[in-house]
């Protein structure tokens, strides 16, 4: 029994070394990004192709935008792919990043229970501010990310436009990723703001429908920022630059456009690098 165990163990070790070797042509990079790019499956689609093209392996840390930027400030990541434009510009201005480029955008949607008790879909099909006002006035359950992520910041900015301070028993702050928040909204039959990609990829398991979409307030720009290599010796700036250039290249942009078409019949992210 012990022998078998040892044999299996050593085989596993050898295998894992082999797997490691094939891609160790160049130093890997650490990409700190938001949960939305991970949960939607975009990175799973893009990264293997990038690694094949360049021999650089990408290690992804998917966190909220707040934490992603913090990792950049602490020099724990080589490159960031995030979506909180004003924070990103400050980040570069303060010298934490070397440059910033637009990569793509996606859009947010308000989702809610299929029966849409408040009738928002009929009244405000593309007016998010009107929708949020109705939700708060009626005390309908609204689930917020509450995790300082880009999506959370986006949501707060829209409440601000609507001149409402979201507070009360109806407003649930989950402190969780998009997938979890959608599940909570589905269980509680409440409303939430989600990025389209995550919603579409999970909608089969949810009792939620798209209620409001297409409002200008709901668009969301992603930016890519290589971290300033002066922070410490471990930062792989070369690899980071290669990744950035690949993402904004014609090939990278075309792949972003292609993602999701097969499965959902529409692109989940719209490339807009210039």
């Amino acid at each position: 029994m012990k022998k078998v165990f040892l044999t299996v163990l050593s085989l596993l070790l050898v295998l894992s070394m082999l797997v490691g070797c094939t891609k160790a042509n160049k130093e890997p990079i650490i990409l700190s990004t938001t949960t939305s790019t991970q949960d939607s499956g975009l990175l799973d689609f893009l990264l293997p192709i990038f690694t094949e093209d360049t021999g650089i392996e990408v290690k992804t840390v998917a966190v909220g935008t707040g934490k992603a930027l913090q990792m950049g400030r602490d020099g724990e990541a080589d490159i960031l792919l995030v979506h909180a434009k004003s924070d990103e510009l400050t980040f570069v201005d303060e010298g934490h990043g070397t440059e910033r480029h637009d990569v793509m955008y996606n859009d947010y949607i308000l989702v809610g229970p299929a029966d849409d008790t408040l009738g928002l879909k009929a009244q405000f099909p593309n007016d998010i501010v009107g929708g949020l006002k109705a939700i708060s006035e009626n005390g309908a359950i609204f689930v917020s990310r509450g995790d300082d992520s880009g999506t959370h910041k986006k949501e707060l900015s829209i409440w601000k436009v609507a001149e409402i301070e979201p507070k009360g028993d109806w407003y649930l702050s989950a402190g969780a990723g998009m997938g979890e928040v959608l599940r909570i909204a589905s269980e509680k039959q409440g409303y939430t703001i989600s990025d389209r990609a995550t919603y579409l990829s999970q909608k089969d398991n949810l009792d939620l429908e798209i209620i409001i979409e297409g409002d200008n307030n709901l668009f969301n720009q992603y930016g890519i920022i290589p971290v300033n290599p002066d922070k410490n010796d471990n930062i792989n700036h070369e690899g980071a630059m290669e990744f950035m250039n690949w993402m904004i290249s014609e090939k990278g942009q075309a792949l972003i456009k292609e993602f999701g078409v097969e499965e959902f019949g529409q692109s989940l992210f719209t490339p807009n690098a210039n």
Binding site: G66, K67, D147, S149, S173, G175, A176
Partner: peptide, 19 residues
């Protein structure tokens, strides 16, 4: 969920992911 189901361990885990 804030104010409803948030306990010590889940808050620590969340606060960490928020930096």
């Amino acid at each position: 969920i804030k104010g409803h189901t948030r306990v010590i361990t889940t808050t620590i885990s969340m606060m960490n992911s928020m930096g």
